[in-house]
């Protein structure tokens, strides 16, 4: 399978995603410069973390106007798998590929560290190798991860199983303390209606090798490979 990692000016997790896809998961991978308009030949697209355009104005607000984003729309339209991680999630929200928006963390600080995340929907192309309700550990590192959407949107996301990841404590409880940024209903990741566009704040690429303190993220990439093969 061939993955594309989009490089916006200011992306800084592009090389990390590339490394995991290529060296850990063993798939083909190529960087896609943000000025490119061509995603032909790719089976999956990763919008990586970082500070695209310095996150000036709002996280992701300027990146969504990069030429590549038109191709990302079309790629998603055709059913291609798209995952936005951290800044990539913010870009997907700004681009309208996923509903809602990001606010600055309620603690007003950049937060880096490990969090517990519950896999709320293990029946997606991105999570099929996790157990339903499984609690995994993943790193976060962001300043704007406070997910917001109107109540109706949130209800709809919940009802349709589109909340894929949720911040929880060790016991799986979505408590206030377990929420690192104030996100509505402890939401850490959501998927689109069709099930081919996922946005998440935690970084699966940072926990795909044991030497980095955890391997829970690897199954996300493996799930994508499995979904693409089937």
């Amino acid at each position: 399978m061939k993955f594309g990692v989009v490089v916006f000016p200011g992306s800084n997790c592009d090389a990390d995603c590339y490394h995991v896809v290529r060296n850990v998961v063993g798939q083909e991978c190529e960087y896609v410069w943000h000025e490119s308009k061509d995603l032909r030949g790719f089976d999956a697209v990763i919008l990586p973390g970082g500070f695209s355009y310095g996150d000036y104005l709002r996280s992701g607000a300027l990146a969504r106007f990069s030429p590549i984003m038109q191709s990302v729309y079309e790629f998603a339209e055709k059913g291609g798998l798209v995952i936005g991680i951290c800044n990539g999630f913010q870009i997907l929200l700004e681009a309208g590929l996923l509903p809602g928006a990001m606010l600055p963390n309620d603690n007003l600080e950049f937060r880096c560290g490990w969090v517990n995340v519950k896999v709320e929907n293990a029946d997606t192309a991105f999570t099929r190798l996790y157990r339903p309700g499984e609690i995994v550990r993943m790193p976060i590192a962001h300043h704007e991860g406070n997910y917001y959407a109107e109540k109706e949107t949130l209800d709809e996301l919940e009802r349709s199983g589109r909340v894929v990841f949720r911040y929880v404590d060790e016991n799986g409880c979505p408590s206030r303390e377990a929420n690192p940024n104030g996100a509505a209903r402890n939401i850490a990741g959501i998927i689109n209606e069709r099930g081919n566009v996922l946005g998440m704040m935690p970084h699966p690429e940072r926990c795909s090798e044991a030497i980095l303190g955890g391997e829970d993220g690897r199954r996300l990439f493996l799930s994508m490979v499995r979904a693409l093969c089937s």
Partner: peptide, 8 residues
Amino acid sequence: RLLANPVT
């Protein structure tokens, strides 16, 4: 189009 995010 750009300066404000209509959601928030």
